[in-house]
Simulated assay, not measured.
Amino acid sequence: MTLQLLRDTETDKPDAATEAPAPAPPETRTCPKCSAPLEDGQDWCLNCGEAQPGGRRVSLPGKRATATVLALTTVLVGGAVAASYAALQDGSETATPPAQLAQVPTASQAAPAPTTAVPDASTAVPSDTVPSDTSAAPSDTDSLLPPDAGDTPDIPDSSGGTSSPADTTTSDTTTGTSTGTTKTDSTADTRTSTSTTKTETETEPVKIDLADGAGSLYDPFTRDTAAGDAAKAFDGDPNTSFPVTVAPGSTQIGAGLAVALPKLQGVREIELKTKTPGFKIEIYATDEEDLPPDVLDTRWAHLKDVKGVGSDTDGAETVNLGSGSTKYRHVLLWFTAPPTEGSTVRISELKLLG
Score class of each variant (00 low, 15 high):
residue 96 T to M: 05
residue 206 V to C: 04
residue 153 P to T: 05
residue 153 P to I: 00
residue 99 A to E: 14
residue 138 P to E: 06
residue 109 Q to C: 05
residue 132 S to I: 06
residue 166 A to F: 11
residue 192 T to A: 15
residue 177 T to E: 13
residue 205 P to H: 00
residue 185 D to F: 05
residue 208 I to E: 00
residue 139 S to K: 02
residue 157 D to Y: 07
residue 118 V to R: 02
residue 102 A to V: 06
residue 178 S to I: 12
residue 170 T to F: 06
residue 141 T to R: 11
residue 152 T to G: 01
residue 98 P to L: 01
residue 201 T to M: 06
residue 198 K to L: 10
residue 176 G to H: 08
residue 160 G to K: 03
residue 140 D to F: 02
residue 143 S to W: 05
residue 120 D to M: 01
residue 192 T to L: 11
residue 111 A to S: 15
residue 200 E to K: 14
residue 131 P to Q: 09
residue 182 T to M: 01
residue 159 S to L: 13
residue 128 D to F: 12
residue 150 G to M: 07
residue 186 S to I: 00
residue 139 S to E: 03
residue 169 T to N: 14
residue 166 A to W: 10
residue 100 Q to M: 05
residue 96 T to C: 03
residue 137 A to M: 07
residue 188 A to N: 12
residue 184 T to I: 10
residue 184 T to F: 04
residue 202 E to H: 14
residue 139 S to F: 00
residue 137 A to K: 03
residue 211 A to G: 12
residue 193 S to L: 04
residue 159 S to T: 14
residue 134 T to R: 06
residue 103 Q to I: 11
residue 161 G to L: 03
residue 209 D to G: 09
residue 163 S to T: 15
residue 192 T to S: 13
residue 166 A to G: 02
residue 108 S to G: 05
residue 212 D to R: 15
residue 149 A to T: 09
residue 202 E to I: 15
residue 151 D to S: 11
residue 124 A to Q: 09
residue 152 T to M: 08
residue 202 E to M: 14
residue 108 S to K: 12
residue 96 T to L: 07
residue 191 R to D: 04
